[in-house]
Design a binder for these strands. Structure first.
Lengths: 194, 194
DNA sequence: TCATTGTGAGTGAACGTTCACATTAGGCAG
DNA sequence: CTGCCTAATGTGAACGTTCACTCACAATGA
């Protein structure tokens, strides 16, 4: 029998590229097949449907990234070190695979519905981290949900700015600036370099 | 002749609601007509195409909001006051018309292509504000584009968190917190309450 | 009266998906 | 080693559905 794994990888790459460039709904199965260099029917040897492809592409990468963040948090002591490591990892991920990063950002709005609630989730990992920091008295801000949103915004908007050409890649050159800005944002009454 | 303006408003409302709830591409002209209580053909008495409806809905509201922000900035003296007024206005807009706010967020990725470059743009208004602050030495951070992204993130992610139910509305209750967080994020070496 | 507004069945194109058939390659008998 | 066998993989024309959009006609009201 032939090995279909190479074909599946070609589908992955074509799908990520086209989904990010044109949007999921705007990308047809014909588009995908042409970009991957296969026939339309071949896609259905590997995925039950187009939706299944999107959901699988999202869920597997989303959960894997959440796992990486969780592992990372365990290797650091103290909230500030964990935060810095998390920002660094997110930015490194963006720079290493911007297309995948943007795909996850793009479809998280719609794809999250098809992902099981108990699956690992980068946002909930971050939320747990902030909650821990609040409990341990390591940050002044007490609303963990607000703190999570702040950190998320300080990371994702610079990434978005790169997409629009308002900021120049790589994102990693802002790692220290953003980690420090997160820290200050979370500590309303403390000196910035506490 | 009959007055079509009421019909046009019904189309606006139906379109905003459905576009936000299901997405633009996932909303058909049949969906729009049914929600607005009109026939499909009627929509084409008011818009040349579905794309035209989206573009008009986006461009008019996007530019109007940018103008409001510009006016607001002129009424304040000093960067910090301007920043606080801007955050307050953005959050007020979100609370007064969350559907319109989310629509502008949702389609800004794709709709910006059809909007003339010289049109007023909320992001460029913010960028000019930050640039002015840098020039006047009112903030420590020197990269205006990075500062713009930071402020944008600190405003938009809390708004997004409300959509997902991670944060409770209204957004306005965070106005002071976020304005202060923006200020601290932009001032790496300064005391937080300078 | 007539320009404007409203109607909805109809149109061709594009969509996701299917299916009968072709191709491939590892296992296995001779 | 050779030559089938078979399951996996690849193919693309065809299918039914849905889509955005059109048009001949009706209704409205200044």
């Amino acid at each position: 029998m032939r090995d279909g794994r190479a074909t599946k990888l070609r589908i992955h790459q074509a799908a990520l590229t086209l989904f990010v460039a044109k949007g999921v709904t705007e990308t047809s199965v014909r588009d995908l097949a042409q970009a991957a260099g296969i026939a339309e029917g071949t896609l259905y040897r590997h995925y039950a449907s187009k939706d299944d492809l999107v959901a699988d592409l999202f869920a597997s990468n989303y959960a894997a990234f959440a796992d990486r963040l969780t592992t990372l948090g365990r290797q650091q002591a103290g909230f500030r070190a964990r935060l810095a490591a998390l920002v660094a990892e997110v930015f490194r991920f963006h720079d290493n695979n911007p297309t995948l990063f943007r795909f996850l950002l793009l479809v998280s709005h719609q794809a999250l519905a098809r992902v099981p609630d108990d699956a690992a989730n980068p946002v909930s990992v971050l939320h747990s981290l902030v909650e821990q920091g609040v409990q341990d008295g390591e940050i002044t801000l007490t609303d963990a949900a607000l703190g999570t949103a702040m950190i998320l915004g300080l990371m994702l908007q610079p990434a978005t700015a790169i997409v629009y050409g308002r900021l120049e890649a790589p994102l990693s050159r802002f790692t220290d600036d953003i980690a420090a800005a997160c820290w200050r944002a979370l500590n309303p009454t403390e000196a910035p370099h506490g």
